[in-house]
């Protein structure tokens, strides 16, 4: 009798320890990035583009990368939304359970797992085929492909959770499925849809491997859809690659900026969706 309880106590202790280990690793990452990144973070870094000799440790900042990343992720998210929302509505309203929607869901799940470097390689092939060079547009297209499954599946889950009564009430009143989708389903699931959009945006802004091939890098602010554009993850990566400690210091600060943006998005979407869910019918 005793032995069984001791075994349980031991395993319970190990379980708590492993959970704490996972939880503390988050704290450890944030701690490391803040401690290393904060000292060289200053106003000039956030508001200036790299000046001559920046990569040797001279003056300048990473504004080009911050703006570039926002353009890239913003464009990618918008494009993914244009495709993802119709897919989610089709899966949720038009064809909830059918062979086609099964296939679409499976392919979205599979696409979710495809590594971003593969998307990068595919985007590169696409650009070669279209005769394009590394550019903002190429980066946006590649990021949209990367974000599409994440966003769509998140929306699909929310729409599926919605009470069917609402939808049926709308249909019973004579609304078409499109009218139901736009006036009832989207309105009711808006908090979830916004969470899905921000989730995809956060994933897009942090991804480096896919824009490495397709967006290029530049020290200037983004100037056009067909010009190369800088991005924060690559700013971190390239600055770490230089042999100068001052520049590496800036890479840590850039990593801090990136982490900060991503955390704000993650926490902000939680706050926003709880604010907005007051307007949904319970």
């Amino acid at each position: 009798m005793k032995r069984r309880q001791v075994e349980e106590a031991i395993f319970k202790f190990i379980m708590v320890c492993s959970f704490l280990l996972v939880a503390s690793s988050l704290g450890l990452i944030l701690f490391t990035v803040i401690v290393k990144g904060l000292p060289s973070l200053n106003w000039a870094m956030l508001t200036q583009t790299p000046k001559g000799g920046y990569y040797l440790g001279k003056e300048g900042g990473i504004l080009n990368a911050i703006v570039g990343s926002i353009y890239l992720a913003g464009g990618g998210t918008l494009l993914a939304l244009l495709l993802g929302l119709p897919i989610a509505l089709y899966l949720g309203v038009y064809s909830r359970k059918s062979r086609i929607s099964d296939w679409v869901r499976l392919s979205l799940d599979v696409l979710w797992g495809v590594p971003s470097i593969v998307y990068g390689a595919f985007g590169f092939i696409l650009m070669l085929a279209m005769g394009m060079r590394a550019s903002l547009l190429g980066g946006i297209i590649t990021l949209a492909l990367l974000e599409l499954p994440i966003m769509t599946r998140a929306m699909d889950e929310v729409i599926r959770m919605m009470p069917r009564d609402l939808e049926q009430a709308s249909l019973a009143l004579g609304a078409t499925r499109m009218e139901t989708a736009i006036h009832v389903v989207i309105r009711q699931t808006l908090p979830g849809i916004i969470t899905a959009i921000l989730l995809a945006f956060g994933r897009g802004i942090g991804d480096a491997a896919s824009v490495l091939f397709t967006a290029g890098y530049t020290d200037r602010l983004p100037s056009g859809l067909l010009r190369p554009v800088a991005s924060l993850p690559l700013a971190v990566f390239f600055q770490l690659g230089t042999p100068f400690p001052e520049v590496q210091q800036r890479a840590y600060s850039a990593a801090l900026v990136l982490t900060f943006i991503v955390l704000i998005i993650s926490l902000g979407s939680r706050w926003l969706s709880s604010r907005l869910s007051r307007f949904a019918l319970k």
């Binding site: 990035v33 991804d207 971190v236 990593a255 990136l258 982490t259 993650s266």
Partner: peptide, 9 residues
């Protein structure tokens, strides 16, 4: 949500 570059750093 933490980007992979930050994990790398």
């Amino acid at each position: 949500a933490i980007p992979s570059v930050v994990y790398g750093v």
